[in-house]
Simulated scan of single mutants.
Amino acid sequence: MPTPAGLKELDIVIAGAGPAGLAAARLLHLNGVGVKVLERDADRSARTQGGSLDLGEDGGLRVLAAAGLAGEFTRLARPQGQRTSYFDTDGNLLLATDESDEDEVRPEIDRLQLRSLLLDSLLAGTVEWGRALTSVERRGERWRLTLAQGETVDADLVIGADGIGSRTRPAVAREAPVYTGVTFIAGEITHPRPGSYAAEVVGEGSGLVLGHDKAFLCQRNGDRSIRVYFAQRRAEDPSRATGTTLADPDFIRRELDREFADWAPKMRGILDEVEAKFVWWPLYTVPTEQRWAARSGLTLVGDAAHVMPPFTGQGVNMGLLDALVLVTALTSPDHVDVDSAIAAYEAEMLPRMADAVAATHAAQDLLLSPEGPAGLLALATSGRGQC
């Protein structure tokens, strides 16, 4: 492979226009390196992208600063989004935290706003929409990407940023993501009623209602809407793909109301406030310790590399950091060629993510415990920190 100094002569393809892929494209652009981003979504507004994200100083904030986007992020971010309240199933407030309880500043930004911020920083035409990837194969010295339309794209360097169902991951990793045993059923309260109970629970940040192996997770968005996740430990349902819209909202409300029957009526009433259709969201993860095969001219970032549950807020931060570490290695004169740069990136990323994945598994077990919120309270009062 050519040296990093020859990156400008390479055909570089990034699979996926999520935060990690777009950050990699932006950072390469700042180094004078052109890329092509292939994205399955039909356009930038095809999906809502979900709720809010909190970016940390050593993760997302550091990367956005390197990308020259810190000022625009500050304009959009919500520092008050760090406030979190924890309740029991009778509605009693157990614990409240804010930015003063955190080890670092972690302002919130809506997922769609973050994606738009990164998209707007790229040259027009960098992202090719409606280009769903079906396979990646080695062809001689290059990679061939086959798209759903039957077209093919050849590349010298492929950066897989195509999420949990990554088509690039099988080229380097034996282990596919596995189900964690927890499923979210997500809904949205687009126009919370003044004084509604959901608004009281969430405040300006997040509200978590913790039961026995169940939880309501409520999150305020920048447009004042509230994203609600009904989290349960349950068997995997292969008949429903991630992101499936559940066709009968009233049926889902009745089923959830039955499953949460021992919760206070005002808690179950949050179900009635959800206005949009419910979405099926099972949680997946990769092993804490991953074993990757070296592949010339191909690597992974973000969820394609290390999808994990969202309970520590590290997914997007680590994905953005992947992009920075990878591009820094690719453009550094310290590496004799692209493959040695990729090897250096993976040597940093895989151990870093082993710790992050282990931490989020621990957080999931704390928040969705058969003992209810007892473990969280014990941790908070022990002086050893909190989730």
Rank of each mutant, 00 (worst) to 15 (best):
T3L: 12
D11G: 05
V13Y: 00
I14M: 03
G16M: 05
A20Y: 00
A24Q: 01
L28C: 01
V33H: 08
A46G: 05
G51V: 04
D54W: 12
E57R: 11
G60H: 05
E72R: 15
T74A: 15
L76D: 06
F87C: 02
D90Q: 11
G91P: 07
L95Q: 10
D98G: 09
D103L: 15
V105D: 13
L112Q: 14
S116E: 08
L118M: 06
L122I: 06
L123R: 13
A124T: 10
G125C: 06
G125Q: 07
G130S: 00
A132E: 02
L133V: 13
L133K: 00
T134L: 09
S135V: 00
V136F: 07
E141F: 03
L145F: 08
Q149W: 14
T152I: 13
V153D: 02
V158G: 02
I159P: 02
A161G: 00
R169A: 10
A171F: 03
R174E: 15
R174T: 09
E175A: 08
Y179F: 12
G181I: 06
V182T: 14
E188F: 09
E188A: 11
H191D: 09
P192C: 04
G195Y: 04
A199F: 09
V201F: 06
V202W: 03
G203F: 10
S206W: 11
G207W: 01
L208V: 04
V209N: 02
V209G: 04
L210R: 04
D213W: 02
I226S: 06
V228K: 01
F251R: 15
R254E: 13
D257R: 15
E259N: 15
A264I: 06
M267E: 07
M267R: 05
M267L: 12
L271A: 12
D272G: 08
E275H: 08
K277T: 15
L283R: 05
Y284P: 12
L298M: 03
L298P: 11
V307T: 12
P309I: 08
G319R: 01
L326A: 04
P333A: 10
D334R: 06
H335F: 03
D337W: 12
S340W: 09
Y345E: 09
R352S: 00
D355G: 09
A356D: 11
V357D: 00
H361Y: 13
A362P: 11
D365F: 13
L367M: 10
P370F: 10
P370L: 11
L379P: 03
R384C: 14
